[in-house]
Amino acid sequence: MRHRTAVLAGAVGLGLGFVGIAFTEAGDWGDYQVGDKRSGYTYAQPETQAMQDDDFENPAFLLVDLAAEQWTIPDGTAGKACADCHGDVENLAGVGASYPVYDEGWGKMMNIEQRINECRTENMQAEPLKYDSKGLLGMTALVKLQSRGMPMNVAIDGPAAPFYEKGKEFYFQRRGQLDLACASCHEDHSGEQLRANRLSQGQPNGFPTYRLKWQNMGSLHRRIKGCNRQVRAEPYKSGSDEYVNLELFISHRANGLPVETPSVRN
C-alpha cells in the first residue's frame, strides 16, 4: 500500500502535456521519440525516468536553483549581472536548442558553456568558470532549461559546415585499444546490451545531466571523455575543438528531439 502523491510523469518533465510516458509500452515513447531518434530517457529504467519526471526529485535542480540566484547577482569588474543584459532568463528560450553556433570572433564553433564564459570575460569582466564546475554546469542547465520541450534545432550550413564535417569524422573514426568509433556503439548497436547496460543512441538533448554514477551533474564533454576512456582511447579536454565539433555533429543528429535538460541518466 503506497500513498504516492500523483505526479504527471512526462508532463512535468517536458512541459508538453503528455502523461504517463514511463508506463507506455516499449516502442511508444511519446515526445521522447521522433522518427527513429530516441532520447536516452527511453533506454533508462523506470526508477531513473521517475527521477527526471518530477523536477523536485531531480537533484540537478539543486545546481539550477543556485544558477537562478546567480543570474541577478553582479560579478566581475564591469559590475554586471547576467540579467543586466538578458533580463529574465526566460528570454533565452530557444537558445539552448540551437547551440553550438559559429562565432565570428572565434572563427569556430562555440557551445553554451563557452558562450557563458565569453559573456563573463568580455561583458562582465569576470573570471571564466571552470568546465564541469558547479557554477558552469548550473548556468548551462539553467539556460538550456529555458528551451526544454523545444525541438533541437542546430544549423550546420554556412560557416558551420566544415566544423560539422570534422565532428562527423570524429564520430565515425575508430580509436583506442578497442578500436571502436562512437558509431560502433551508438549507430550499429544501440538498443543492445553491453554487459549489464543497454546502449543508447548517444543523444545529447538532455545534457548537462544528473548522472546516477557520478551522483552529480556533469557535462556532455565529461560523458564523451568517459566513452573515450571506455574504449581505452586518450580523451580530449572538455571544451576542446575536437569535442565542440563532435557536439555540433551529434546535436544536429538529435535535431527534432526535445531539449530535456537537465535529464537524469545512468
Binding site: L178, C185, D188, E192, Q193, L194, R195, R229, Q230, R232
Partner: peptide, 13 residues
Amino acid sequence: QFVITVAAGSAAA
C-alpha cells in the same frame, strides 16, 4: 564478437 570484445575491454578496464 562485438559484445565479447567490448565486455572484455570494460572488464579489464
